[in-house]
Nucleic acid binder design. Structure first.
Lengths: 169, 169
DNA sequence: TGACAATCGTTTCATCTGGAACGACCATCG
DNA sequence: CGATGGTCGTTCCAGATGAAACGATTGTCA
C-alpha cells in the first residue's frame, strides 16, 4: 500500500498580534484613552474639543470647516465640540462678513491660557510615551505613519481581488 | 532710554500633524474603516465579529473571556459579537462541564470556511496597505508599535507633572 | 434677474460603545 | 455545610459617533 504523504493542508491563520491594522487600532485606542484622561482632568476637555483647540492654536482665526479639514474629524463632531467650547467661554464665533456661511473662530484670553496648558500637557505626555524609542526610531515611526496615512488618503485603487462572489452567510 | 530686547515670548504651539498620538488615532480610524468595509462586503461581518473569528481561528476552543484577553476588546462588545456569530451559525457554544461559568466556543464548518475567507482578505489587504514600506521599515514599524503598546500596558507610572492645580474650566 | 446646484454648519436618528449592575456559578474559609 | 467574595457572561443605560436631512447662504449659468 502506497502511503501517499498528504500535502498537509496548511491551515491559514491570522494572528491578530502580528496583524498591523489590529495593532494600530489597539494602540491608538489605548493612547486616546490615556490622553483623553489627561486632558479631562487637567483642563476638563474631551479629545475632540482638545483637537479643535489645537487647530485654533496653530491657525488662529479659522472657520469650522477649516477645522474639519485639519483634523479629519467628522463635521458633526466638530460642530458639537465647538459649541461646548463656546459654552465654556474658550472661544468666540463671528460670521465672516465676506461669506456669511462661514463662522470664524478665535480664542478668548481664557481660551489662549487653556491652550497653553493643553500644549504643555500634550507634549509632556507624548515625550513620556515615546521615551523608550531612540530618536531614530521615533523619526522612522513618524515617517511610516505618514506614509501609511498617505497610502489611504490617495484613496488608493485597492480593488478587492474578486474571489468568487459568494457573500458568505 | 535703554531699549531692552524683549525675550520674545515663544508661543507654545502643538502641531497636530506632528503629534504622534494624533497621527496614530487618525491612521487607525481610517484603517479600521477600510478594513471594516472589506469584511462587511466580503463576509458580512463587522470588525468586532471578525476579531472574534480571528481569535477562534488561532486558539480554537476558547471561552468568551479568553477572547476578551486576546483582543483587548470590551467584555460587552465581545458578548454582542459572539451572539451575532452564533445567530449566523458560524460558531457554537457549550458550557464547560468543569466550570459551568465558562462557555466554550468552536467553529461550525461554515464558520471555518468563513474564517478562511476572512484570513485571505485580511492578509491581502494588509499587504496592499503596507506595500510602500520596505521589509525593514515594516519590521521596524511592528517593533515600534509593540514597544509603545507595552509602554502603556505596563500601565506606566506616568504621573502628570502637577502644575499648579488650577482646573481651568 | 431667477432658477438650480453647491457649500457651511446644525440637528436628527440609528447605531455602537464602555461602565455598572446583575444573575449564575465557583472557591475559600469558618 | 453555609456565607462571603470572586469570576464569567449578559443586559441596561448614558454618552459618543457618523450618515443623512435640513435651513441658510453663495456661486453659476441661462
Amino acid at each position: 500500500m502506497k502511503t501517499r504523504i498528504m500535502p498537509k493542508r496548511r491551515v491559514a491563520t491570522l494572528r491578530l498580534d502580528h496583524f498591523i491594522p489590529y495593532k494600530l487600532s489597539v494602540l491608538a485606542a489605548k493612547v486616546s484613552l490615556r490622553l483623553a484622561r489627561e486632558y479631562e482632568q487637567a483642563v476638563g476637555l474631551q479629545l475632540p474639543e482638545a483637537r479643535v483647540m489645537a487647530v485654533l492654536g496653530s491657525f488662529s482665526p479659522v472657520s469650522s470647516n477649516a477645522v474639519v479639514q485639519h483634523t479629519s474629524m467628522d463635521k458633526a463632531t466638530v460642530s458639537r465640540a465647538i459649541s461646548r467650547l463656546l459654552h465654556l467661554g474658550l472661544m468666540t464665533r463671528v460670521p465672516d462678513p465676506r461669506d456669511r456661511r462661514l463662522l470664524i473662530l478665535s480664542f478668548t484670553p481664557r481660551g489662549r491660557r487653556c491652550y497653553a496648558r493643553l500644549t504643555r500637557i500634550a507634549r509632556k505626555w507624548e515625550s513620556w510615551f515615546v521615551a523608550r524609542l531612540s530618536a531614530a526610531e521615533h523619526a522612522r515611526l513618524k515617517r511610516s505613519l505618514t506614509k501609511l496615512t498617505e497610502r489611504l488618503e490617495a484613496n488608493g485603487p485597492y480593488a478587492a481581488p474578486k474571489l468568487r462572489t459568494k457573500r458568505a452567510p
